[in-house]
């Protein structure tokens, strides 16, 4: 591990999906760092590149994906790893939990077998020892009557229990980095909050770094230390969670916050962001959000905004914030 103890460091990450018909630029120059014990939440709508960025961290992408830039986990260059090194890292140093716990678990193996398999793989223990560990892990993630659940098949468990089993599996080898891909989206609201609280608690206990992908701002507010908002394959705004949610700077973040329900009068219309995200197969000129942005200027449509830092730990990519639009130099035009 390097001196600065980053669990994850991503520099100018680019992911392209190349097929005969087209090239889709899913991620265009994403950079972020994550310290030990820190929780980063990546927010964005479908197709914004958030899941792809995260999978790039453990190179869990199909072979047609071309990954560029730098990706380091615990100081090791993930993009230079051999297949063997990758399988040794996955599940041990970096783990991942998925959105749909029903389909993410193998339907014909028991939950216990699947957890034990991971332990056996990385720690070379016997099947018996693996199952013993699996039982401890299920108890660790507060699965009731864990002994019985150990022998259960995924379809015999409720969604919440399945996700707990998934979490137990991901944590089985005490990873320093946990990647969570919308792990609560498929769950009922009450179960969702339970799983979130559990995750936060386990994260503190184990001191893991967590990257939590979601499209739900409320979920991000619950769990994250810092938040990165992604749009069209870029991080458009990043900052500490309270700061960013209280004082969003990017028009996209503002629009997203305005379009969520938070105790307004029942008769007020919820504001929606007009339009839809750009097609990532096409070359994007200027700011990708400009066509949907009510403050967009000529500059926005022609030149891509650089990243600027308007405050402590904050970063934003918007001409209006960086004040380069000339006329609106003194105050953001939308304020």
């Amino acid at each position: 591990m390097t001196d600065n103890a980053y669990v994850a460091r991503v520099e100018n990450l680019e992911v392209k999906f190349v097929s005969r018909e087209s090239t889709t630029k899913a991620v265009n120059g994403v950079s972020f760092t994550l310290k030990e014990g820190e929780v980063l939440s990546i927010i964005g709508e479908s197709g914004s590149g958030k899941s792809v960025s995260m999978r790039a961290l453990m190179r869990l992408l199909p072979s047609k994906a071309k990954i560029g830039g730098e990706v380091e986990v615990n100081g090791k260059d993930v993009l230079k790893m051999s297949g063997r090194e990758l399988t040794r890292m996955r599940g041990k140093e970096v783990s991942m939990i998925f959105q749909e716990p029903m389909t993410a678990l193998d339907p014909v193996y028991t939950v216990g077998d699947q957890i034990a398999e991971t332990v056996m793989r990385h720690e070379g223990v016997s099947k018996e020892e693996g199952l013993k560990r699996a039982l401890e892990l299920l108890e660790f993630v507060r699965v009731p009557s864990a002994e019985r659940r150990l022998k259960a098949y995924p379809f015999e468990l409720s969604g919440g229990l399945r996700q707990r089993a998934m979490i137990a599996m991901a944590l089985s080898c005490r990873p320093s980095l946990l990647l969570a891909d919308e792990p609560t989206t498929a769950l009922d609201a009450t179960v969702q909050i339970q799983v979130l609280i559990l995750l936060r608690k386990l994260q503190k206990e184990m001191g893991m770094g967590v990257i939590f992908v979601t499209h739900d701002l409320g979920v991000a507010a619950q769990i994250a230390d810092k938040v990165a908002v992604m749009y069209a394959g870029r991080i458009v705004e990043m900052g500490p969670v309270r700061d960013l949610l209280r004082n969003p700077l990017h028009p996209y973040t503002q629009g997203m916050l305005a379009s969520t329900v938070h105790g307004q009068d029942r008769n007020t219309d919820i504001e929606a962001i007009p339009g839809s995200p750009p097609d990532m197969r096409n070359e994007i000129r200027g700011c990708a959000f400009a066509p949907r942005c009510k403050h967009a200027t000529e500059l926005c449509r022609t030149t891509e905004p650089p990243e600027t830092s308007p405050g402590e730990g904050r970063a934003v990519r918007c001409h209006l914030v960086s004040g380069m639009t000339g006329a609106e130099q003194d105050a953001p035009a939308y304020a």
């Binding site: 453990m58 869990l60 399988t87 040794r88 890292m89 996955r90 599940g91 041990k92 783990s95 991942m96 998925f98 993410a104 678990l105 193998d106 398999e117 991971t118 793989r121 990385h122 998934m166 599996m169 991901a170």
Partner: peptide
């Protein structure tokens, strides 16, 4: 994908 994510060969 889960299998690969947990480091299975």
């Amino acid at each position: 994908q889960t299998l690969r994510a947990k480091g299975m060969g």
